[in-house]
Design a binder for these strands. Sequence first.
DNA 1: CTTCCTTTGCAAAACGTTTTGGATCGGTGT
DNA 2: ACACCGATCCAAAACGTTTTGCAAAGGAAG
Lengths: 340, 340
Amino acid sequence: MTTRVGIREVAKAAGVSVTTVSHALNDATSSRVKAETQQHVRDVARNLGYAPNRLASGLRNQRSQILGLVSDEITTTPFAGAMIRGAQDAAYERGYVVMVVNSGLDSELEHREITMLQQHQVDGVVYARLYHQGVELPPALSGIPTVLLDAVTGDPAVSSIVPDEVEAAETAVEALIRAGHTRIGMINNVDDIPATHGRLEGFHNALRRHGIEHDPRHLVIGQPITSGGREAALGLLSHPDRPTALFCFSDRVAMGAYQAAAALGLTVPEDVSIVGIDNLELIADSLWPGLTTVALPHYDMGRWAVNRVLDDIERPGAPPKQVRLACPLIERGSVGPPRT
Amino acid sequence: MTTRVGIREVAKAAGVSVTTVSHALNDATSSRVKAETQQHVRDVARNLGYAPNRLASGLRNQRSQILGLVSDEITTTPFAGAMIRGAQDAAYERGYVVMVVNSGLDSELEHREITMLQQHQVDGVVYARLYHQGVELPPALSGIPTVLLDAVTGDPAVSSIVPDEVEAAETAVEALIRAGHTRIGMINNVDDIPATHGRLEGFHNALRRHGIEHDPRHLVIGQPITSGGREAALGLLSHPDRPTALFCFSDRVAMGAYQAAAALGLTVPEDVSIVGIDNLELIADSLWPGLTTVALPHYDMGRWAVNRVLDDIERPGAPPKQVRLACPLIERGSVGPPRT
DNA sequence: CTTCCTTTGCAAAACGTTTTGGATCGGTGT
DNA sequence: ACACCGATCCAAAACGTTTTGCAAAGGAAG
């Protein structure tokens, strides 16, 4: 690596002092340097390809311009990619860069990784989970501005953003109701997590709001994967007065429902309409017909989280905020009117 | 943020000078400090929760201990997550951390992002693509140790790692041959990329090696997505002497083949065996029966790439190397003997 | 007792910035 | 002509490390 060009070289080339160069480039204290010289310095800097050393400036003003993103998992779904990209885009717009770190389930590894982030003097961190859940903030993070992404915690002092599970379910179910369905089944998750409860609540809300009475036999639970959905849907759809529409806990479950329908000789959406939640494009676009589903806004949550933590850093004092983000309906081809 | 504890606090608490602390912690020049005091210093440091400021040490020894990972896309598949995680794990083991940056297709954005990495004084970068392809290294990277991940370039001076496409195809096809198939169809990609040519070559290699004559009507091409696979398979499988097994360009294409089989009343694997390439677990585990496929080793490629760039950084001089990584067969349930 | 090592510890410089307090230099009012 | 003022610019200190040269202390050899 040829010796990189520093502020001194710029100063010498421009015929001014390093102070002047610094002032000219970070035009904060504007009146200290004449506009003409400022322009001159900038031209020289650009010509020399000067790129300020952020280690040095970070050391000097105790700001690394780095954000940490610690996430539990990263490889199983494209969700993590969406979160990361949202976080990155927002960070980039404000002159920051993000260090991603992920720890699997290993909390000791997580601790060491947070330590590394601290060593690199990250200005803040967003602590992310891949699936909406309650967490406890690792004590190593105390002292660093932190916001939660797709997770909540008991502490009202920490900001967080999660998808609005109940509203998402309402959106999904209302799409079915709007198409004319009244016998609507739901395949829920067995796990005891916020998504399970929130989506069930939204399901009931939507039915109630439209005065639809719910047949309790039309609510089943299963593993939140394709095979679980297949089995659950098989049960639901072989029922004599089977539901005409299925609201599935997730897109994978919905994929199982497609398989069950096919096995029973039912076609989607003519014989049974299906909606999911997730907008996993790999699945939703691949099914045939395409799966109408509600998108979990990982990208936007990522953006929000870093914007929030940057606000906390740059002008602290704003009260913490726990946000639930709305989830848009993505229409493809799996919802149609019930067969009369 | 309470004032962080620095090396001076440690020195004072341990009753020695900062020099001694530094030597005690980075036991490089070992003979400078007595083993006993070294242990003492370390204990004190741990008790105080001392974490060295890497901005400062990076500034001092011109090593940031940061690696850049620039990637084109990140949100569409879980592949990016696997690459990133592999890169991270390898980096972590060697005391580095990675800054991920992604630019979509925008080459001007890419340039600015690389500039940011440079400002943060990254010690090296791995330049990644999500799908194996030929690229040109952006000039902004000249001067920084760089290795290519899932991409190749004309320059023999830069190291790279890609999946071994032809060997992957051979592995897939041999699984079919081993099960007893001889009438094997292939659904290839229309796009002119290395994967297309490599996998076709591997297909032919495997057939030739086993003395199987190939019916050219059993080779079709289509869009590398589910609908493309569905259409292609529909054509292939409605043929009078249809193939008994299908080698699909990708798992998404294979998913389309499943749909075509179902539409024609054929069952997998009794009537038709299917293999894919990708090991997209979201799809392969969700299909029924599970999809036997060849895994693209994104995690391992990520590991290799950062280990290589770290070798280049820490002890330069090794000749560059272009590696093609083997791809393992992942058996699920979509391959069986042909119906006699 | 002197001399000469060896072992151990310290002071200070350096890395590339930002920023504070002052210096320089025209020009202006008296 | 003198003091003063505003506008520019500069020298130097500071951020938290690592490392180089040196000093002090102690032990062995003469």
